[in-house]
Computed example of a mutant assay.
Amino acid sequence: MHPFLRIINRILTLILVAAGIGVGLLYFLKVQFDKPGPLETAKIVVIPQGRGVSAIGEQLESEGVIADRRIFVTTSLYFNYLKDNSTLKAGEYEFAAHTSMRDVLDKLVEGKSIRHKVTVAEGLTSQQVVRKLLDHPELTGEITEIPPEGSLLPDTYLFRRGESRQDILKRMAQAQQVFMAEHWKDRAPDLPIDTPQEALILASIVEKETAVEGERPQIAAVFENRLKKGMRLQSDPTIIYGLVGGEGKLGRPILQSELDKKTVYNTYQIDGLPPTPIANPGRSAILATLNPAETDALYFVADGTGGHAFAASLSEHNDNVADWRRIQRQREKEEAERQAEQDGAASTDNPTGLDGDAEAGLAASAGGDGQPPVPKRNPKLTPSP
């Protein structure tokens, strides 16, 4: 054979051998890449920020997620540089038992980390929201200041481990701005509120007055009807906010002296709206405020079922108040009888638990200066929310 042809033959032989070895190696890598991994049970692994492919592979191998970090790194580099520049993302990941390296890599490339959640209920004050975020162990960082009251949209917010508390507050504020902007333009005509901020103030009162979503448009209508007529709102939750602010709860009945004391939040004593929201209203309360029910009702009082009885006239309202009194007395009598039975007593001297001053206060709450109150409770008889 000609020497030149002999050289060509050897080169081709080497190429074929190399190709065979390459194909075999690729097949081996594919088998190892796709076969079930060593994990016996599911495991959660946290990949820190800034960690490179080699360090991630070493961590996964040490924690028993993968069998060989060299294969993992090799395939990771292949996907990163030869395909679509897919980088591995930091986060908290849950890997199922016997998950393959392919599934591990796919999860890290797509960033399918565990999503935690924090639920902020409607009607919480901004101070209560901040406290809730500070108590959440998966969030990080401090909160520099309490957001303005009413500026946050209650909801369930998803986040990844390590996200900052300040970022959650920012998302809540942005969500509220977007929601209000979207629905402000679709508000009902002739509302007695001129700005989105006034709508938030009234919505926060509606939020605190009832937990029954279906009657919020009626509650909103009552307050808006009163504003149109120049009547005071006379809402107990505004008094409570004036007393405790962002703490949210008074923890006792409102005193008559507190009803009589004029503060900027006491809507028994001031005209119009208080200066700020008294909580962070949810979507339902905001929508009810922007599109209230069509009703001429001016009053409401608890009806004993968890909802309220509405009235357009004082006489009708007084009848509803009398019905509520009877329900209260009956309940307190039944409770006293149950307690007496538990204590082994045949009866009690005062089964209703009401004294003369309390009865007088309840009677006065329905009359007064010609503007009967709206509240669903009597502050001397039942605990405030």
Rank of each mutant, 00 (worst) to 15 (best):
R69Y: 13
E334V: 02
A55R: 13
Q328H: 07
P38L: 13
D323E: 11
R165P: 04
D135L: 07
G230L: 03
G214K: 07
E149K: 06
D68V: 02
E316Q: 14
S257T: 06
D271N: 09
L273E: 00
H317K: 12
V301C: 08
Q59N: 10
D167F: 08
I205C: 14
M172D: 04
I47H: 02
V31P: 03
K35I: 05
P147R: 07
W324H: 08
G123C: 06
S54E: 15
K30S: 15
K249E: 12
G24F: 01
D194S: 10
T41Y: 08
Y81E: 12
V104L: 07
L77W: 15
Y299K: 00
A181D: 13
L273R: 04
F79M: 11
V17N: 04
S313V: 05
R325A: 14
P274L: 05
S315R: 08
N9M: 05
A97D: 05
K261R: 13
G24L: 11
L287A: 02
A181V: 02
I66M: 09
P189M: 14
P351I: 08
L12C: 03
F4P: 02
P154S: 00
L200F: 09
V104K: 12
K185E: 13
R329Y: 08
K228C: 06
T305V: 03
Q197Y: 11
Q59P: 00
R326P: 01
T99K: 09
R161L: 14
D271F: 00
A346T: 14
V53T: 15
A364T: 00
L105M: 13
R160S: 13
I7E: 10
G370R: 01
H308P: 01
S151W: 15
G248P: 13
P372M: 00
L134R: 12
T382S: 15
V301H: 11
L227S: 01
N318H: 14
E334I: 01
Y299S: 00
I205E: 10
A366T: 09
N318Q: 15
H2W: 12
V206K: 12
G111S: 01
S62F: 08
A211P: 06
Q339P: 03
G52D: 15
K208N: 06
N378F: 15
E215G: 05
G111Q: 07
S86H: 14
L273M: 02
L26W: 15
T276V: 03
G64M: 05
I219T: 03
E149P: 06
I56H: 10
T263K: 09
I11D: 07
L139G: 11
L287N: 09
K83N: 09
E58D: 15
N9Y: 08
V374W: 03
I254M: 04
